[in-house]
Design a protein around this nucleic acid. Structure first.
Length: 569
DNA sequence: CCGAGCTGCGCG
DNA sequence: AAAGCGCGCAGCTCGG
């Protein structure tokens, strides 16, 4: 009988595997020498394609990828536990809620030990032995099975686990990056590359002009307090040195100062030092952190993958003979909101077109820009300014969608928790928050306490309001990634040596994911397969929508282009 | 000398 | 005009 699940973990001096059937009944148990493990995993994957159950994907998967072994499915115990132990869908008394060593590494483990090097794993806080993994897997299966909606949670943990595989593969493959183009952009904007520790020419020139306008040749520009005082001395009365406030001022120092700040930002965040540290073999390899954000979005650690600046997108360049498929979802969050709320009016406004143009057509607002500001305000909880003023108009036109986010806000203000579409639940309020709210309702509460309590309540309301939308959008994106990953892996490898990728693991010889950021993906594909890969990207988006929302009539149109660079047009 | 905290920027 | 969500990071200041 084919194993449906294979649980992996350390046993004395080796690696143990427990093969389970679909219902979790044990079929077989074996111990493998470390050196034999990769081949065994590869052949078992090939023959049975099981779900690999392991404590933490970064501890197992990168080493397999290095050996050219890719798996199609896994169950990541660490990530799934984080979801299940706090999900409102899971029974209050479920064993998975009982605190244990599995919670020690609730956040991503730094520099996880690899499976072929268990001796170095002594410092690891997450359990890595086979029996612990088997027991934890049973707890998690029980939590899902006895939950109020097993189907949704199964989908969520499968998507989350697929994300763990994708993250490891993204890091292994890397984003194709042209060092020469990056250097050209830097030289163009900043001036010639300085000697170590020096300031680039154009940045230095801007600094001199700032100091000239300040009448102080020694003025410090990089220190916010000193710069603020220097500005006050020449009569520029600003409260901060932020760009928007400076831009309002009329003074000769403003123009060069804003210029300096722009150049300085590029130089320090993505200058030559960044290039040397993060780009190797023409690949940018950020560290992705799946589930790193409370809402379920990914975070990143190192390399600043969440900030790939527009200025540098031209440096993202496909290898010779290859192409990039660059795709993002237009207005993902409001579409997700329409589907969650079963708001057919908003879905109609969204279908097959720019959602904001659709809102404009309903007459709820007067311009597309207003539609966008109003919708963002509704999802973020704006109360003032243009945004706050426009939200009530949306409330009249899309009452169901607005009721969903308004309800989420009210629950949060009252100290409750909210959940995404698939069942990821927001953290409860902190003890301090609860104490303040309790204190504010007492008869002798000071005005200041009541004011502060109300402010904290509204703050939390805006968080839960946004949580349901941002978190469900993250789930849609995971489903998109997971389905796309499978489709791409079914495309052929290039056999033409001239079109081989410059660098990367074996799986990168066929179309593969190269970048992911919230609602955008980049696929790197041989030119001959680019159209097929693009079709896969679109099909996966359709599948993700149906997977989450069934036959509710919402679509997720993509802005997609096939190009040699990721530059936004 | 190190780390926490703050400011400011840029990404979705 | 710069609010209303979620992040990471650089560079600075300041306290220990």
């Amino acid at each position: 009988m084919s194993p449906f699940w294979v649980v992996l973990g350390r046993v004395e001096g080796a690696v143990g595997a427990v093969l389970l059937d679909r219902e979790g009944e044990e079929l077989e148990r074996l111990a493998l020498d470390r050196s034999a493990l990769p081949d065994w995993i590869a052949s078992t994957e090939h023959e049975h394609g099981p779900r690999w159950v392991w404590n933490d994907a970064p501890a197992w998967y990168p080493a397999l990828l290095e050996r050219g072994i890719r798996v199609s499915r896994c169950h990541d115990l660490r990530l799934c536990r984080i979801i299940l132990r706090t999900s409102a869908l899971v029974d209050r008394d479920a064993d998975v809620r009982v605190p244990s060593a599995w919670d020690a590494a609730a956040t991503a483990m730094e520099s996880a030990p690899t499976l072929f090097d268990f001796d170095a794993a002594d410092g690891a806080t997450l359990p890595d032995d086979l029996e612990s993994a088997v027991a934890e897997f049973a707890r998690q299966r029980d939590a899902i099975g006895t939950s109020t909606d097993p189907a949704r949670l199964r989908l969520l943990v499968a998507a989350e686990s697929a994300g763990a595989l994708v993250a490891a593969e993204l890091q292994a493959a890397g984003l194709p990056w042209s060092t020469a183009e990056h250097d050209r952009i830097l030289t163009d904007i900043l001036g010639a590359r300085p000697a170590a520790g020096g300031v680039p020419a154009k940045m230095d020139a801007a600094a001199r002009r700032v100091r000239g306008a300040l009448g102080d040749p020694a003025a410090s520009i990089d220190s916010q307090p000193k710069l603020l005082r220097a500005l006050h001395r020449v009569g520029v009365q600003v409260e901060s040195t932020s760009r928007w406030e400076l831009a309002e001022q009329q003074h000769p120092v403003i123009e060069p100062l804003l210029e300096y700040k722009k150049l300085s930002r590029l130089h320090s965040a993505n200058g030559w030092a960044w290039l040397a540290e993060w780009v190797r073999d023409e690949r940018f390899r950020p560290v992705y952190v799946p589930g790193g954000v409370v809402t379920g979005r990914w975070a990143s650690s190192g390399g600043g993958a969440l900030q790939l600046p527009r200025q540098l997108r031209a440096a993202v360049r496909s290898d010779p003979g290859w192409r990039l498929i660059v795709a993002d979802v237009a207005q993902l969050e409001p579409r997700v909101l329409a589907a969650m709320a079963r708001d057919t009016a908003l879905a109609d406004a969204a279908r097959g077109r720019d959602l904001y143009a659709g809102i404009l057509e309903t007459g709820a607002v007067d311009t597309r820009a207003e539609a966008k500001i109003a919708m963002l305000g509704a999802m973020y909880g704006a109360t003032t300014g243009d945004s706050g003023r426009l939200v009530p108009r949306l409330r009249r036109t899309f009452p169901r969608a607005m009721a969903l986010v308004d309800d989420a806000a009210r629950v949060g203000e009252d100290g409750g928790v909210v959940s995404t579409w698939l069942g990821r639940t927001s953290p409860p309020p902190s003890d301090g928050w609860m104490q303040l709210q309790a204190r504010a309702t007492e008869a002798d509460a000071a005005d200041g306490e009541q004011t502060r309590a109300r402010r904290w309540a509204r703050d939390r309301g805006r968080f839960t309001r946004n949580f349901v939308v941002q978190g469900t959008a993250a789930e849609w994106a995971l489903a998109w990634l997971a389905d796309l990953r499978t489709r791409l892996s079914a495309l052929p490898e290039v056999d033409d040596g001239s079109a081989a990728p410059r660098s990367g693991p074996a799986f990168a010889r066929r179309p593969h994911l190269a970048f992911f950021l919230h609602d955008e993906i980049i696929v790197h594909a041989p030119e001959s397969l680019a159209e097929e890969a693009a079709a896969a990207v679109r099909e996966a988006a359709d599948v993700a929508g149906r997977l989450l929302f069934g036959d509710f009539p919402i679509d997720f149109p993509l802005d997609l282009r096939i190009a040699e660079s990721a530059e936004k047009t």
